[in-house]
């Protein structure tokens, strides 16, 4: 509602305006820990506006793949391109600065800080003024802070956390903390959002809420999402495309319906002969 200057409506995403470009792409990734082959020739990509889920049994290599994408692991072979740049040799912070946002399993928020402060931390890698300017609360640093607080508040509104903005994150329940975690990932203004088991340990209501927010991020901000998640119902419900890993290899890839019907997937999950 810009016209009245009170509430703003996110502009609808220009759906299908251009052919989907691959925002993040990994080719022929290999990764091994000693004799164990964690990834064997895995190809992966996510296109603009897409929501891709990676599923597979424990030890299938899902987290290894995410860690290669975000730079925590160095693949022994293969390449990773992000936003048209080869990032294979780039350190995680530089990838984050380029707009690769990631959340981790479990809770990684700062307990003693408020919701807003946690989200502001996500803006940190985009702040330009330094320690001295910040300490002096000098013109540019003050303006920058005002701008980022407003951005953090936009995220708070988006995630409907207004009544908790000044609440210590340590006082919140698990579901809300994961929401704050997502908010912090959004604060880096991501070009791609990588979520590692965001719904583990949540009850059905919390899962439904978080799924709604993930879809809204994907829809409203047109941010491609890479999701690793164990809850099949959620995965099948919200994904555009699903990739199935087993023993470090891709065994299936396609729409949720295709994957669900794939005999190899059924075998991997249910152990049928």
């Amino acid at each position: 509602m810009q016209a009245l200057g009170i509430r703003t409506v996110p502009t609808p995403a220009a759906a299908g305006a251009t052919a989907p470009t691959r925002v993040l792409e990994a080719r022929d990734l290999h990764l091994s820990f000693g004799a164990i082959q964690a990834l064997v020739g895995v190809n992966f990509h996510v296109a603009a506006g897409e929501l891709v889920s990676i599923i597979g049994p424990n030890g299938a290599g899902k987290s290894s793949l995410l860690n290669c994408l975000s730079g925590f692991y160095k693949p022994s072979a293969g390449s990773i391109r992000f936003a048209g740049v080869d990032v294979s040799r780039m350190a995680p912070p530089r990838r984050a600065a380029m707009g690769m946002a990631r959340t981790f399993q479990g809770i990684q928020t700062y307990e003693s800080m408020t919701v807003r402060e946690n989200i502001l931390c996500g803006c940190h890698c985009r702040m330009r003024t330094g320690l001295v300017a910040g300490a002096l609360w000098w013109g540019p640093s003050r303006r920058e802070m005002v701008r980022f607080v407003d951005e953090a508040e936009t995220i708070i509104e988006f995630l409907e956390l207004e009544e908790l903005r000044h609440t210590r994150v340590g006082d919140l329940g698990y579901g809300l903390r994961k929401r704050v975690d997502l908010g912090r990932a959004l604060a880096i203004d991501p070009k791609v959002l990588i979520l590692d088991e965001p719904m583990a340990g949540m009850n059905a209501d919390e899962k439904a809420d978080l799924a709604r927010y993930i879809l809204d991020v994907n829809d409203a901000r047109d941010v491609p999402v890479v999701l690793v998640e164990h809850d099949m119902e959620v995965v099948m419900d919200i994904s555009d495309r699903v990739m199935v890993l087993e023993w470090g290899r891709t065994i299936a890839e396609g729409t949720p319906a295709e994957v669900r019907a794939d005999p190899k997937v059924i075998q991997a999950y249910l152990g049928q002969e």
């Binding site: 509602m1 016209a3 509430r7 409506v9 759906a15």
Partner: peptide, 23 residues
């Protein structure tokens, strides 16, 4: 409608965004 969130894929011709309505 005042808040367009979630209405991105609605194509009912009756629906107008408040900002556009005012504009």
């Amino acid at each position: 409608y005042l808040d367009g969130r979630g209405l991105w894929h609605y194509d009912d011709p009756m629906l107008v965004d408040f900002g556009r309505f005012v504009a």
